[in-house]
């Protein structure tokens, strides 16, 4: 069973950290990624550029609009993700709790929806 772990934290908290503090947290991320690769849970995982670099695209009635943003006034922003394999939700949440940002932000755990492939496409 696959889960996407979405990492939300406050970019300002990161920006306000001393180099020692952010270096320590970064080290914890390296260690965590190494551990879940070795345990076989890891499928993918990346950090994202800051939210001010984001662009939002919408297609309506054949017309595409591209805007800067999102400008959601939320305290926490999507900052990265891990895609993992876990046997059930309890295992997935236990792994999510070990993500270093769980201490300063929050992790959203989303099961991946499996679509059955139509026979013709196989």
């Amino acid at each position: 069973m696959q889960y996407l772990l979405l990492i939300y934290d406050n970019e300002k908290v990161w920006a306000d950290m001393s180099p020692e503090e952010s270096g320590k947290l970064f080290g914890e991320y390296m260690q965590f990624s190494k551990e879940i690769r070795e345990s076989g849970h890891f499928i993918a995982g990346e950090a994202l550029q800051q939210v001010h670099t984001a662009t939002t695209v919408r297609s309506r009635n054949g017309k595409t609009t591209t805007t800067d943003g999102p400008f959601a006034e939320t305290r926490e922003q999507l900052g990265g993700f891990y895609m993992i394999n876990a046997k059930d939700l309890d295992e997935a949440t236990a792994i999510a709790a070990r993500i270093p940002s769980a201490k300063i932000g929050s992790i959203e755990v989303r099961p991946i929806q499996a679509f059955e492939q139509p026979a013709a496409m196989k």
């Binding site: 069973m1 046997k87 059930d88 939700l89 309890d90 755990v109 099961p111 929806q113």
Partner: peptide, 10 residues
């Protein structure tokens, strides 16, 4: 069912 909450004693 979809998030696979385990059917187990913790």
């Amino acid at each position: 069912k979809e998030a696979r909450i385990p059917y187990e004693v913790p």
